[in-house]
């Protein structure tokens, strides 16, 4: 009668003494893997102008039709991006988005990256629709050049398409910001300094 009770309690005791695996979530966060695909971020150029040229390829590629863009023309007084056109509206409907990351691949200007920002709940359906001002990086934020398709370690045979990006310094910087830069990579950072 007492024996099974002790047996049960011994399990409790064992787990009580083990190091705990829960974390104090809102205060503490678990680092996410580097390829975590959460909220999109629209990047800027170094000079603070927006990168997006409103080509709408991301919207075309999106399987759920979650991206909605209206293009417009830059003028002398109102310059938003480098070229002629910019996105006047760039809306993302999180109710539709399934975080597949295809838009990131489609973008010819490397505007979109996906961040590890995953706390996306809102109180209303309208709140699920994020607008350009909510998605665009801060004007002084450093651009990050690559995100998808790369492992922290260089794969043995990188695809020729991706090679130029791999060489890029800022890619490694980006990985560092994520705290996932392996040792080998740190050394290769010096090697691949070229732009």
């Amino acid at each position: 009668m007492i024996l099974p009770l002790l047996k049960g309690l011994s399990v409790t005791l064992r787990h009580f003494l083990k190091p705990k695996i829960t974390i104090q979530y809102p205060e503490e966060r678990k680092p996410l893997p580097p390829r975590a695909r959460w909220l999109h971020k629209l990047q800027r150029h170094e000079d603070g102008l927006e990168r997006c040229v409103a080509c709408m390829l991301c919207a075309a590629a999106c399987p759920t039709g979650a991206i909605y863009i209206v293009g417009d023309e830059n003028t002398e007084d109102h310059r938003v991006s480098h070229g002629e056109r910019y996105a006047a509206v760039w809306d993302l409907d999180l109710g539709r988005c399934m975080f597949c990351g295809i838009c990131v691949e489609a973008c010819p200007e490397e505007v979109i990256i996906m961040t590890d920002e995953y706390e996306l709940a809102t109180e209303s359906r309208e709140g699920l629709i994020l607008h350009k001002d909510q998605l665009t990086a801060k004007p002084d934020e450093k651009p990050i050049w690559a995100w998808m398709g790369y492992y922290p370690q260089e794969p043995a045979q990188p695809s020729p398409l991706h090679l130029p990006l791999f060489k890029h310094k800022r890619y490694w910087e980006y990985l560092k910001t994520r705290g996932h830069l392996p040792l080998e990579a740190t050394s290769s950072e010096q090697k691949n300094d070229g732009t």
């Binding site: 909605y68 409907d93 309208e126």
Partner: peptide
Amino acid sequence: RLGTRYGRGHMVTGGYR
């Protein structure tokens, strides 16, 4: 534009488009 009454239909989330 797609998303008008002839397009892909209203968005599920509240018909915003």
